[in-house]
Amino acid sequence: MMSHGFKSSKQDFTFGPWKVTAAKNHIMKSKDIERLGEEMNMPSLPEMLFGDNVLRIQHTDGYGIEFNAIDALKRVNNMEDAVKVACAQEWQESRADSEHSKEVVRPYDWTYTTDYRGTLLGEASHIKVSETAERIDLEKLKVREQIMFFNEVLLFEDELHDHGVSMIGVKIRVMPTSFFLLQRFFLRVDGVLIRINDTRLYHEAGKNYMLREFSMRESKIPELKNVPPALYTDPNEIAQYLTLKLTECEKLELPVMQPQTDVKVTCIQ
């Protein structure tokens, strides 16, 4: 059954040796979500889980990086209930009633907080990841350049039983000389806290590496008393007001592929 006239879509965009694929599909069916929840040992998964959505950047040599919902969920800490909130008890009870009233609800991070930074493609040895002091030049990104390709893909979203929102999505823009990607996890637990985990990825044509920056920002709602509450629902606006808890910068070095040549072996007697 088609809902809201939604059509699955897949867009490919090729530039130089790279291909970007943005695939958007229907929400995962509940029986598949249940099976996945069991595999992941999580009593509940996000209401809107786009298991087949993906944003992939792949080199003609096979290596690259992609962002998908299942791998993002695998980075959720399912052993602890990370946010103790005023409404948690009532929330747990509402879930317990509807889904497994007789079972003990296992503790898990019901906010679905993830520190996912993408899934590397190709053999493990292909892309070398190391810490770096180099930063993505955000000023350079503000210079108006022609955008040759833009796309945005939602991976999952949950309204936390009307107590806020937990969502993660990824967007990319490709310019003539570079590409820039932002994956953002946004969590708002009403009356309690707002958290944003960002992964930024940047590559400049001609360079043999990508830069990846991961940051975690979080503030409790009482700490935001000077910020208009209207901004709480807008990740782009609220991000600048949240306390920066962590930044990690990495260099993703791309392999130098040797050209394939026919090698003749001559045996000397």
Rank of each mutant, 00 (worst) to 15 (best):
M1W: 13
M2N: 14
S3C: 14
S3I: 15
H4C: 10
K7Q: 06
S8V: 01
S9V: 05
S9C: 01
K10D: 14
Q11V: 08
F15C: 13
F15D: 11
P17F: 05
P17R: 06
W18S: 02
K19W: 10
A22V: 11
A22Q: 04
A23H: 07
N25R: 11
I27A: 04
K29C: 11
K31I: 13
D32T: 13
G37S: 14
G37N: 10
E38G: 11
E38R: 15
L45M: 14
P46F: 02
M48V: 02
G51H: 01
G51D: 00
R56I: 02
H59P: 04
T60D: 13
D61V: 00
Y63R: 07
E66R: 00
F67E: 03
L73C: 01
K74V: 02
K74R: 10
N77L: 03
E80V: 10
A82H: 10
C87T: 15
Q89G: 14
W91H: 08
D97T: 11
D97A: 13
D97V: 12
S98N: 07
H100Q: 05
H100F: 08
S101Q: 07
S101M: 06
K102W: 11
K102T: 09
V104Q: 11
V105I: 14
V105S: 07
R106M: 10
P107Y: 08
T111G: 02
Y112Q: 01
T113M: 09
T114S: 13
D115C: 11
G122D: 00
E123Q: 12
A124Y: 13
S125Y: 08
V129R: 06
V129L: 04
T132W: 05
E134W: 07
R135M: 10
R135C: 06
E139K: 15
E139T: 15
L141W: 08
V143T: 06
V143I: 07
E145P: 02
I147A: 06
F150M: 02
E152H: 11
L154I: 12
I168Y: 00
G169K: 09
V170D: 00
R173P: 03
V174P: 02
P176I: 07
F180E: 01
F180R: 01
L181Y: 00
F185E: 04
F185G: 05
F186T: 09
R188A: 07
V189L: 09
V189R: 04
D190R: 14
G191D: 03
V192T: 12
L193T: 04
D198M: 11
T199P: 08
T199D: 03
L201I: 07
G206S: 02
M210C: 11
R212E: 06
R212S: 12
F214A: 03
F214D: 00
S215W: 00
S215F: 01
E218M: 02
S219M: 03
K220W: 08
I221K: 02
E223P: 01
E223G: 00
E223N: 06
L224P: 01
N226T: 10
N226L: 06
P228M: 12
A230T: 15
A230C: 12
L231Y: 03
Y232D: 07
T233S: 09
N236R: 15
E237M: 15
E237C: 12
E237W: 08
I238A: 01
Q240H: 09
L242E: 00
L242A: 02
L244P: 09
T247G: 11
E250A: 07
E250Y: 12
E250V: 04
L252C: 06
P255T: 10
P255C: 08
V256T: 05
M257H: 13
V265Q: 02
T266M: 09
Q269E: 11
